[in-house]
Design a binder for these strands. Sequence first.
DNA 1: AACTCTTGACAATGGTATTGACAGGGTTCT
DNA 2: AGAACCCTGTCAATACCATTGTCAAGAGTT
Lengths: 167, 167
Amino acid sequence: MGRLDRDPTRPVYVISVAASIVSVHPRTLRIYEDEGLLCPARTATNIRLYSEEDVRRILWIRHLTQNRGVNLAGIRILFELEERLGTRILETLFDEANAFDDEQARQASKAESSDLPQALGAAPTQPAASVGGASSGTTQATRPPTSGQPPQDASNRTRQVVGADHH
Amino acid sequence: MGRLDRDPTRPVYVISVAASIVSVHPRTLRIYEDEGLLCPARTATNIRLYSEEDVRRILWIRHLTQNRGVNLAGIRILFELEERLGTRILETLFDEANAFDDEQARQASKAESSDLPQALGAAPTQPAASVGGASSGTTQATRPPTSGQPPQDASNRTRQVVGADHH
DNA sequence: AACTCTTGACAATGGTATTGACAGGGTTCT
DNA sequence: AGAACCCTGTCAATACCATTGTCAAGAGTT
């Protein structure tokens, strides 16, 4: 069922598909994982499988890097914060952007996107733990629930993969 | 009384002194201001005057950039967050570093500093407002209270200015 | 067989952060 | 008056970062 799947944590996309959905280079996804920002599940044969939550998380990374200019180390801190606080900290920030003073409004106007992104998912900082059953041979990462729909702006436009309803 | 002054919000240091205290180049301080991370007071003749809170804030910036690799855009987001939330979010994060799992501990071990920094001060995003009385002709920025002592590590070692107890 | 996945390595390109220098003008202190 | 320092603005060197791209060698999938 691809993107219409009911369980957003189910690892369903191989790297090429995920990269296509979020419009990044597969190499980039591997780097995000190397940098600890992302932890896709692995099959028994070591193939990465990305879930909807992973996709959402990547979109958040893209939004922050492309639209806000935050570097990967900064994103890591933000993820850690959200996990520690257990709240949608960025959602808190961006939802109330209207309440910002003139200086803040000026900063916000620099961003290309006028959409107010919702909170990031928490960083899946745990190593992938093996759980049986979901897909035979699939290693499912344990992670806190991901919240919020990532921003839908030009740079984060998701691409519907034609004909690839399942990896 | 220089660094022993009772009021940490009082603007007392010219840029060369502040730069010396925090061991950065004056050019860098101007850039931080240009980037909206910092807003020192101004004299009637347009000279920047930095307070203890400003110094603390700069030390936080240095800690995050030098030790955590966060870029200035990332720091801006973190400052905005702390202001929005009105809590010491980074203090929350770093104080509980011991409770992190193995993956987090691995990330933390990459940092040079073993000190756990306390929370950042809020971003002084308001334009400086004129208040009379504190120092004649000095423009005092209005800002939320700054919390926490910044990290004391090698890269953020503050330098006592000899013989310059007051700009 | 053909294609895709893996890790690891290398490189090109554009952007960022810091420092440094300079010009021209203004301010403060001796 | 002169020296030092402040201002804004500009330019540049240097190191680093993020992204993309390529390649090699091996493994996995259809």
